[in-house]
Design a protein around this nucleic acid. Sequence first.
DNA 1: AATCGACTTGATAATCGTTATCAACAAGCG
DNA 2: CGCTTGTTGATAACGATTATCAAGTCGATT
Lengths: 135, 135
Amino acid sequence: MAVVRRNTWQRESVREALDLESGFVSAQTLHATLRDAGSPIGLATVYRTLADLAAAGDADSLQSPEGESLYRACNSASHHHHLICRKCGKTVEIAADDVEAWAQRVAAENGFTDAHHIVDVFGLCGACSAAAALG
Amino acid sequence: MAVVRRNTWQRESVREALDLESGFVSAQTLHATLRDAGSPIGLATVYRTLADLAAAGDADSLQSPEGESLYRACNSASHHHHLICRKCGKTVEIAADDVEAWAQRVAAENGFTDAHHIVDVFGLCGACSAAAALG
DNA sequence: AATCGACTTGATAATCGTTATCAACAAGCG
DNA sequence: CGCTTGTTGATAACGATTATCAAGTCGATT
């Protein structure tokens, strides 16, 4: 991987497409979206760019319960978690200072150091809940 | 998948092997362990049995940060989370009533229903921390 | 103990997401 | 403009998981 980043329309495309998404998307989905929009961008580039964005802190990434890697644009560089609709993918960023503290405390109590944590909440958003109630 | 379960030595093997593990293991790893111990059990069967155990609530499963599915024997049928050493895999089950409540509250505040959550803490256990400090 | 039908098994192929390869290409500097 | 070096993308390779399906086993029934 290169140390110096160049600006290419491909990178811009991925960044833009990711910004337009309201929630987490997989690399595959984003690639399909771009292709549908007429972009000839390659799948490998989408994967690479998303990984770069995540590494640079410009995107959040998480694993869906099915094991796919999902990405989402994120402007708040600070640490935070997500509330995700498992139906439509809508995502709400949630600050969780209590949880941060809890995680550190629990780790320390058990002699663990260098603790990181994965905290995400999946559910049905208001709209999808309503839709489900009708069905 | 069958509705009625039969008892086979294969299922017993998997259950036993999982019990002997101190932390989360992948299906591949467990299969290798069983094979090394002389068992001629098939990989597909290990996957199937682990999935069954998880579905029946006799095992916990989670995704490693690298995307593998990991399993662990669990006797406390109640809901709980894990503190996992990312070096040696040692796992501590942690009750987290505060976090449960927090997750439900946050979901409700945002109009989400049917909230589930993924909460796991990865770190270095005491032993591995010490080892790392020496290196 | 022998029979039989339904459930299980397991070698292997197939699938799926992701990463590596590498020649062609383009960004940006001089 | 021309060169150096990072970037791209079609495709192959990869690793984990699941599907396939013939052969084998369980266990209830004689």
